[in-house]
Simulated scan of single mutants.
Amino acid sequence: MKKALLFVIFALLSLSVNAQFLNTGGDIDHERLNFGFLLGIDRGSFVVAKQSDFSIPGSNPYTPNDTLQAIKPLGSMGFSLGLLANLNLSKNFDLRFTPKFSFIDRQLEFEYNKASDRKVYNKKVESTFLELPLLLKFKSDRQRDVRMYIIGGIKFVTDIRSKKKKNDDSDFNPDDDRKLVKINNSFFAVEAGIGADIYLEYFKFSPEFKLSRSMTNVMKKGDDNLFTRPLAGLFAEAFHFTMYFE
């Protein structure tokens, strides 16, 4: 998947650089405000903060006879789609608002050493996010049909709470291994990345790579169960490959 994406990007760059004429991209650089849409492929994970006594036998009242050996974040793939509004501030700076829906899951692996065998629990943190990023884009000078750029900013993220999460509040006992690990419904995150504006005849195409991470602990407070007790905190992070069409 990654190799195919890189091949497409470099092929488009080569075609643009070697073109014998300059494309206008629909004269987009002469517009003060322009709009478009985006499609993205995302990979989400967590940065895990553990309790200092997470591996001490008996520290978790829900597993008094078991020893927790490790808590591992597992990355999962997802996708996103949305819109963009771009405000041209100057020759080299743009302000971008890119609201989008992001469908991405994150996973945690809990490895226990029981008296009789080894037990592994995989807990999927399911989320459908509405993300509202406000980003500052710094563009290089145009080289034929290509501009390179760096981008960064802050975004507000809110989770569209699922029925499954609501049922989890009351349906299961705290020591039930079906319990979920839940995150806050809303949080702020920072993100930064690089990309390229490729000017075609009637529009501009921009492949972009970004990293994002929540600014604070996103683990929901008040949940005390088999899987949340050994956790001191979770920080949501993601790698984004996004294609913009303006």
Rank of each mutant, 00 (worst) to 15 (best):
V125G: 01
H30S: 15
D27L: 14
R161I: 13
F203W: 11
F46S: 00
A19H: 07
F7L: 14
S127N: 14
A238L: 03
E201H: 09
A49P: 00
V8E: 05
R106L: 00
N173W: 05
F97C: 08
N60R: 03
F209N: 03
M219Y: 05
L84Y: 07
R178Q: 14
F10T: 12
R96D: 08
D53N: 15
K72C: 03
S186R: 07
R229V: 14
P73C: 01
S52L: 14
L180I: 07
F205I: 15
K210I: 00
N88A: 09
G222R: 10
F37Q: 01
T98M: 14
G193Y: 02
I28Q: 09
Y199K: 10
Y121C: 06
F235R: 08
A232W: 01
L12H: 07
A19T: 03
N225R: 08
Y112Q: 09
V48M: 01
A4W: 12
F241D: 01
S206R: 04
R178P: 01
S80E: 05
L95N: 04
K164Y: 08
H30Y: 12
Y149C: 03
F209T: 01
M148A: 15
K163I: 10
T128Q: 10
V48G: 00
G193M: 02
P207S: 09
I150K: 00
D145T: 06
Q20F: 11
F188Y: 13
A70F: 05
L12P: 01
D197R: 07
V125I: 09
G193Q: 06
K220T: 09
M243A: 13
Y244G: 03
S102F: 02
D177N: 15
E111G: 06
E131M: 09
N65E: 15
F110E: 04
D169P: 01
M243G: 07
L33A: 12
F101G: 13
G44W: 00
L68T: 05
V120W: 06
D29G: 05
S55I: 03
T228F: 06
K100W: 03
L135N: 10
L13C: 11
L13Y: 03
K139S: 13
N225L: 06
D66G: 07
T67W: 02
F235S: 05
A115M: 11
M219C: 02
K182D: 12
S127D: 13
N18F: 11
K137M: 05
L15N: 12
D171S: 12
Q20T: 14
I154F: 12
K100L: 13
V218Y: 00
L15V: 07
N167H: 08
D66A: 15
L200Q: 07
V157A: 10
T128I: 14
E131F: 03
N113F: 05
S55P: 02
L130Y: 12
T98F: 08
V218K: 00
